[in-house]
Amino acid sequence: MPRVTMASLPDYARYVIAAAEASAAYFPITRTIRLPGLELTAHLVPGALAESLDRAFIEAEGDQVDVRHLRVFIGHPGIGDLPEPAHWGDAHFTEHGFAQKLAEAGLRGLHFHDLDFWQLHDLRRHVGVQLMRSTDAFPPWEPGSPLRAFLHWEYAARGMRLTHAGTFGLDGKGALLAGAGGAGKSGTVVAGLLSGLDSVGDDYVLVDLEGGVRARPLFSTLKQDPKGFARLGLKTRLGADGPLNWQGKHTFHIEEIAPRPIPATLDIFALMVPHIGRGETSSIMPMSRRDAMMALAPSGIAQMPGERESGFRFFSDLTRLLPCYRISLGPDPEEIAGTIADFLARGS
């Protein structure tokens, strides 16, 4: 089994990418996905990832300008000349050191040690490879937002950012909902959708700061734990027959509960940080930008490989552009949605 060290990492990345490109004819499936300003062409094989690619994205509609093209090969040994994925062979692995070493060579990458799972990307040529031991040897979170690392690298290079936040909106204007897991972010987004509000996503949305803060949809996947799923009435509405995901949560798709087609963009006018309150009703109070930044940035940066400093600067700029609020969530989803709808109506 080959071993990769920090010194050999860029050469290994180039070797894998070249092997995938040389094997292009052996990938039985090609999918093209239209995203905001980006056309993603994925070459892969049948299986769970191919199914997730069919459902996990919210595709951009209509004519777009300045569209870049990204090719990603998703494969494993047995497809053309794709090699066995290598082990990591250095004593120490640091996320930052790994990312820096690749960035010096114009490359980007991610390595998940437990599975010898690699995502390697040539940013200059917009070609990437997801190399796995076998068809299903991917981290359990991958199907919910497939290929997100490649999208992250491509968009970051253009000054945009995959942002770990929920969204809700009304008449084209909306708010970002930031915070760690368990704070009530997903439940709030779902409650809003069920009450007629819009959203461009719950987990990862594309944000740019050109001429104001705008959020665009990328992924359609929504998640709820069984308790929230029942509390929000989703068990009755969607059924609960499907398997739970790796976090023990139900997964479903935004278009299954959205009141109307997903908007192509939301003009964001507020950054909100939810927490589960103790009162009977929800309330919205101003909060410091420092605290909002601490709610927004860490998970968004930690969950995306590389681009740390640019992410820190981006989220700082974003936070400075928006008024920041803490939303204390009451127990009733309809009441939460009503509070948010009132807030959006005032903000619009």
Partner: peptide, 21 residues
């Protein structure tokens, strides 16, 4: 690396992902 928000600083150590408020 660090940024200031209305006079309040947030620092990030890029090497290990630790934040300081």
């Amino acid at each position: 690396v660090f940024e200031s928000f209305d006079g309040e600083a947030v620092v990030l150590d890029l090497s290990n992902g630790k934040y300081f408020g």
